[in-house]
Design a binder for these strands. Structure first.
Length: 508
RNA sequence: CGGGCUGUGGCUCAGCUUGGUAGAGCGCCUGGUUCGGGACCAGGAGGCCGUGGGUUCAAAUCCCACCAGCCCGACCA
């Protein structure tokens, strides 16, 4: 154990002291985002937005590779469109922002007031099934027009009561895919394909392992027949839904009139899907990998993968050090990691070396490289990896580092995944009895309710009453029902026969 | 949207009970000493004390209303 002084962490409180507060502090310290003056909305700062842009680009590539194309639909949805699908409206009604007026006028007291009421109020999209459906109804006439495979990158608004940076904000950014298919089987396959893309993306790019499967009826998307989801475990052992893919059956095509003449010449409603992944992923990643010194970014989504820190203690060596830094940066930028050129930054700001270094630690940049006068003489660099102890650095020759940088990035990427996977496995348990289940989810310390078991794999017989009971007692819900053939058994709550185990957890 | 708490320079807060028109630490700026590490010294900028009204000779301080934020519930990507 080191001395108290050496234990000082960049972020306080530490994760184990107060996880929610730690999270807020990390997001701010790393300059990812901050709350804005607009209730429930956040400002995403360049470092945070850079991460999102990387996610966006990478996911987009995956969508394109599977035949999807981007388009853009209106932010405003006429109330009448929105109200077409009963379950859907009911599900979203409470969180809709509604535009009722246009024009501002100055009133007698000199204040600006909305002047002219709209004949039909406009709902600001909480999701776009209905407005996109209206277009699809026009575009789809024949089975030859199918499938329609469209995605849009957009902002949506859901008037949430308890916002938290990235995890739940009133306005957030996402992608929403909306597809129409000729047959049920094709639509189901589409929903599954997207689930697989989401799973692969979080695993390979964000280094976050997930459980995949279907939602129980009570957790399903309003209006969906089946909701597929990926659920990640973060460091307080809670689950977070990180992406969803819905098989919508013919519910929305019926509501929007998406009809086509099938191969037999008969009119038929299209089979639709919708799927989305949001800026919540940024928060998920922070909570999955971060430590008490800040964010730790998987190299694949880091806006800057390598930062070069010039050490310039003496004026006379300064120019030569900077020159060496630029030369190394140039060399590194010519190399590739995961299909794109390595992003390198030389931090030549006139700040104390320690201050700079800590800033990058908090931001989670994967590799920090120091070059100082002594390195110039030895033709070497000092390399620090963010996935290793803060103080550790390794000296190597410039050539060796430049040549090996892609491998180091790869190694960090892999290490983060392995760590997260190990954590997930260590905190996922097969549970065989009701008592064991309740014990598992009971906080060990009443003051820190977030410290509890983790994920439980237990048999359940499909009864909604049981789900309700567990939710009321423990705030634990079924996160996913794994797909495929599970081992049969008996529900640990009712004793009734059960087809398979399901994943239970507390969630965000 | 219900219950509790809180609004004082960029941030964290003290002052309020016992009214007399503002303080600290951090951050920021300048100069210097440092600097392979979030250093130190000196000087400096920055606040109509959430908003509106009331009581009073006098309000950050007392009273009322409103607004906003936090925590706990219900809801959610």
């Amino acid at each position: 154990m080191s001395t108290p002084a050496a234990q000082k962490t960049a972020i306080s409180p530490r994760r184990e002291e107060d996880f929610p507060e730690w999270y807020q502090q990390v997001v701010r310290a790393a300059e990812l985002a901050e709350p804005s003056d607009v209730r429930g909305c956040m400002v995403i700062r360049p470092w945070g937005y850079g991460i999102w842009e990387n996610m966006q680009r990478q996911l987009d590539t995956m969508f394109r590779a599977t035949g999807h194309r981007n388009a853009y639909f209106p932010l405003f949805i006429p109330l009448s469109y929105f109200a077409k699908e009963a379950e859907h409206v009911e599900g979203f009604a409470k969180e809709c922002a509604v535009v009722t007026h246009t024009r501002l006028e100055v009133d007698a007291e000199g204040k600006m007031k909305p002047a002219s009421a709209l004949t039909e109020p406009l709902v600001i999209r909480p999701t776009s099934e209905t407005i996109i459906g209206a277009s699809y109804a026009k575009w789809v006439q024949s089975y030859r027009d199918l499938p329609v495979l469209i995605n849009q990158w957009a902002n949506v608004v859901r008037w949430e009561m308890r916002p938290r940076l990235f995890l739940r904000t009133t306005e957030f950014l996402w992608q929403e895919g909306h597809t129409v298919h000729e047959t049920e089987a094709q639509a189901r396959a589409e929903a599954m394909l997207i689930l697989e893309i989401y799973e692969r993306f979080t695993r390979e790019h964000l280094a976050v392992p997930v459980f995949t499967g279907a939602k129980s009826e009570s957790e399903r998307f309003p209006g969906a027949v089946q909701t597929l989801t990926i659920e990640a475990m973060v460091q307080d052992r809670k689950a977070i839904q990180a992406g969803t893919s819905h098989f919508l059956g013919q519910n929305f095509s019926r509501a929007s009139g998406i009809q086509f003449q099938n191969r037999e010449g008969k009119q038929e409603f299209g089979w639709t899907t919708s799927w989305g992944m949001t800026t919540r992923m940024v928060g998920t990643m922070v909570m999955a990998h971060g430590d008490d010194d800040g964010v730790i970014l998987p190299p694949r989504v880091a806006p800057t993968q390598i930062v070069i820190l010039p050490i310039t203690p003496k004026e006379d060596t300064r120019a030569r050090v900077l020159e060496a830094c630029d030369a190394l940066a140039l060399q590194l930028r010519g190399k590739h990691f995961a299909d794109s050129a390595i992003e390198v930054e030389v931090d030549r700001r006139d700040l104390g070396g320690g201050v700079k270094n800590w800033e990058w630690i908090k931001k989670g940049v994967p590799i920090r490289v120091e070059i100082g006068p002594r390195d110039l003489e030895k033709n070497s660099v000092e390399v620090s990896r963010r996935d290793q102890a803060i103080k550790s650095k390794e000296s190597m020759s410039i050539q060796e580092f430049a040549a090996g940088a892609p491998e180091i990035l790869m190694s960090i990427q892999q290490n983060l995944y392995d760590r997260a996977k190990k954590f997930q496995e260590a905190n996922t348990r097969v549970i065989e009895s009701k008592k064991e289940f309740y014990d598992f989810f009971t906080a060990r310390n009443a003051n820190k309710p977030e410290i509890h078991g983790g994920f439980a794999l237990a048999h359940w017989n499909g009864s909604h009453e049981v789900e309700e009971q567990i939710k009321n007692d423990l705030k634990v819900t079924i996160r996913v029902i794994p797909l495929g053939d599970g081992e049969p058994g008996h529900c640990i709550f009712t004793g009734a026969p059960s087809r398979q185990r399901v994943v239970w957890a507390k969630s965000y």
